[in-house]
Amino acid sequence: MTRYVLSRLAGLVPTLFLIGVLVFLFVHLLPGDPARLAAGPDATPETVALVRKDLGLDRTIPQQFVRFVDGVLHWNFGRSLSTKRPVAEEIAERFMPTFWLTVWSMAWSVTFGMAIGVASAVWRNRWPDRIGMTLAVSGISFPAFALGMVLMQVFAVDLGWVPAVGNDDWRGYILPSLTLGAAVAAIMARFTRSSFVDILGEDFVRTARAKGLDERHVVIKHAMRNALIPVVTMMGLQFGFLLGGSIVVEKVFNWPGLGRLLVDAVDMRDYPVIQALVLLFSLEFIAINLVVDVLYGLINPAIRFR
């Protein structure tokens, strides 16, 4: 197990390097001249030239690449082309709002989703299942921005219970995390159900039942462990997605997070910010996947790592 984790960690370096190269090429393939964009709508050609020089975009592509790699190795991601602040600072400021929003959304949606999923599987084709799955299906098929707007209209504007935007205190987290978590809860519920239904039909569960163990014992002790594998996979994936910042939800609720930063950066062709963000998202994803794989082993010792 330790060897497995170590080898995965070693594999991380080439992956990150590959992503770095790709993202560098990628941003330079995007149409649109960042100097022109940064200089603004009524800039004269010499202003654009000045801005280009200021942003270091007058160098050749290989020179820029060497500068980028050198910077990353020294933990220096350069300065944002649009705000001119260090990219690291820019990201650090936006990371925590996204992180906490993700944590809260995951917390409620996983709890809720798994509970619905287990209940639906146990009482399959009966009313808890029908209600649960109707909820889950609705959660996944309603676009997030529409849900966010409805919630804001009802709970902030009409009822005045919570602020419409802002993350100054816990009340600001309620609506965005509900909106963001709705789809996750729905996915978790469906996955848990499907996985449990599979497992409950397995021989060993039938055996346990046949032995006369009571249903709760069967579900918790025998089914849970095996059913959790796909559920954990899905949980990891969703966590990673949310951590990347939900663009739509962050926009509707004016959330000062990474999703909005990324959209703004793409709009302005803010190369350093895009590059650093993609590297960060990659790192998060790889880390989460590693944790998920290790969890597989812990949950089900039948899986061995070589």
Binding site: G11, P14, T15, L18, I19, L22, V23, F26, L29, L30, P31, G240, G244, I247, L262, V263, V266, I274, L277, V278, F281, S282, F285, I286, N289
Partner: peptide, 23 residues
């Protein structure tokens, strides 16, 4: 395969889409 997945995952969807449409 998992490295390829990691790379694909790491690229946020919107960025990937913009890239594809741009190219």
């Amino acid at each position: 395969v998992m490295r390829i997945c990691d790379v694909l995952f790491a690229f946020p969807g919107i960025l990937l889409a913009i890239g594809i449409v741009a190219i």
